[in-house]
Design a protein around this nucleic acid. Structure first.
Lengths: 196, 196
DNA sequence: GTCTGCACTTGACATTGTGTCAATTGACAT
DNA sequence: ATGTCAATTGACACAATGTCAAGTGCAGAC
């Protein structure tokens, strides 16, 4: 939200996010986006070279608009590793539904477009950093189970928090967001944390 | 393998599986499959009405050729719930790499084709039944943690064993198959099993 | 032997969606 | 007035899927 600069570029990005969030999913074409932004299809190409770049820009736009960085940053202020783990699970887990539409489109594109793949991996590595920070905080408190190594623990937490897992439970199995958060938090604790 | 009936239909299915397993991934078109099966592109359409049905038939073909049913059945003979859980994790987890290529193509198609989606869900519900059997066996032994309900436990095990999670760890993070199996087994135990 | 049916081939074509190109319009700034 | 810049319009190239119609070659029946 922040600035109300309604440049054509941001109108396109907003339209893209809106259509993808609506969840019709597959059926979002360049022409649909143009129509939603009330410009011609060709005008979209004046701002974005192709569909992949548009989707990438849309995720960045969304990340900024939703303030994901600040939200994840919040978990950094936690006093100890356990609280930090919980806070991170909650912050990211509650962020997923807000970006799912766009994320889904980008995930699909990543199979065919190397640029999209790179952008996606970049985005995911940011999440992984959060996982690493949480794991390291546990380690510092000597509360990390050493069934797995540090790096393995990070990968496991990252896997648990993947958008695909959210999709599995919420979309495919009909879980509520609250049940999802509660379960993932519990699983993360059981797998990563040992009793004091 | 079983029968060496080299009908055109099975030649097409074998070619499809082979190309998809090769992992080039996105770049498998109907024309590629036809060429690999040494027939004309149009002949493929004499046997399968469209790409979606071909992919669906290919997964069925692969499931049968690899004997997935027997392999999963093996875990049913386990004496107790814990052994059964381990056996199921191992059987399914080791099956994933053998079908990943075809599964990936079908997963991609499921976003756009309702038939593919239905076929995929059907396939996945078979895996879920295995998860349910393992959870129920634990329940019978009074070894199931009751942090989650029975149904939630099933969904969680199913989520842990999802192909996407295998993809995350093996493809994206470079884990070995052995590390993957060991970790998932360990996580499943920690989440589902309580000490005797 | 020829006829018939069947599996397959050949080549053309429709369709959908992406991306490109060139000519034009309209507004605004100087 | 003129130049510039964003956007429009319409035409087109390109993949890839899927459809259609005519033709080929071969095996089995009579």
């Amino acid at each position: 939200m922040s600035r109300e600069e309604s440049t054509t570029r941001t109108r396109i990005l907003k339209a893209t996010c809106k259509l993808l969030a609506a969840g019709d999913g597959q059926g979002v074409r360049m022409a649909d986006i143009a129509k939603a932004a009330k410009i011609s299809r060709q005008a979209v190409y004046l701002h974005f070279p192709n569909r992949a770049e548009l989707l990438i820009a849309a995720t960045r736009h969304l990340d900024q608009a939703k303030g994901i960085d600040q939200r994840l940053e919040a978990s950094r202020t936690a006093q100890n590793g356990l609280v930090r783990l919980d806070a991170f699970v909650e912050a990211w887990g509650n962020y997923i539904p807000e970006i799912y539409g766009v994320a889904r489109a980008l995930m699909a594109m990543k199979d065919s477009d190397p640029e999209a793949r790179a952008a996606w991996n970049d985005r995911m590595s940011a999440v992984r950093e959060g996982c690493a920070a949480a794991v390291d905080a546990l380690e510092r408190d000597r509360r990390l189970t050493h069934v797995h190594s540090r790096d393995e623990s990070i990968d496991i937490l990252w896997m648990l928090l993947s958008i695909r897992n959210w999709e599995h439970l919420i979309q495919d199995r009909g879980w509520s967001q609250q049940d999802y958060i509660d379960s993932i938090r519990e699983i993360a604790r059981r797998v990563l944390v040992r009793s004091a």
